[in-house]
C-alpha cells in the first residue's frame, strides 16, 4: 500500500457504473484546484472508467492501485 497525500476521501465501495464516476465528479466540483481526492471502489470497471474520465475532464490521475477487490484512486483537480 502506497501512501499518497490527499485532501478528501470518497468511498464508492459497493457501487457499480456509472455511480463511482458521477460521485467522483460531484465531489471534485466542490474542491479547490490542486487538491487531491482519494476514491475507493470495488467496481472492476472503474479502472478504465477513471482513466477515461480523467482523460476527458483533464483532472490528473496521480496514482492508482489495486488490492484484491479494492481499487484506490488519487485524483488531483486541475
Amino acid at each position: 500500500m502506497t501512501e499518497v497525500a490527499f485532501d478528501q476521501e470518497l468511498d464508492c465501495q459497493g457501487m457499480l457504473c456509472p455511480l463511482p464516476i458521477l460521485k467522483t465528479k460531484k465531489v471534485i466540483d466542490t474542491m479547490e484546484v490542486g487538491k487531491v481526492l482519494k476514491m475507493l471502489s470495488t467496481d472492476a470497471g472503474s479502472v478504465n472508467d477513471m482513466i477515461a474520465w480523467t482523460h476527458q475532464t483533464g483532472h490528473e490521475l496521480v496514482y492508482s492501485e489495486r488490492n484484491e477487490r479494492l481499487y484506490t484512486y488519487y485524483v488531483r483537480k486541475t
Binding site: P18, I21, L22, K25, W53, Q56, T57
Partner: peptide, 12 residues
Amino acid sequence: FILASTAAAMGW
C-alpha cells in the same frame, strides 16, 4: 440515462 449522466460528468 447512464450515458447521458456520465457524459455530463465529463463536462459534455
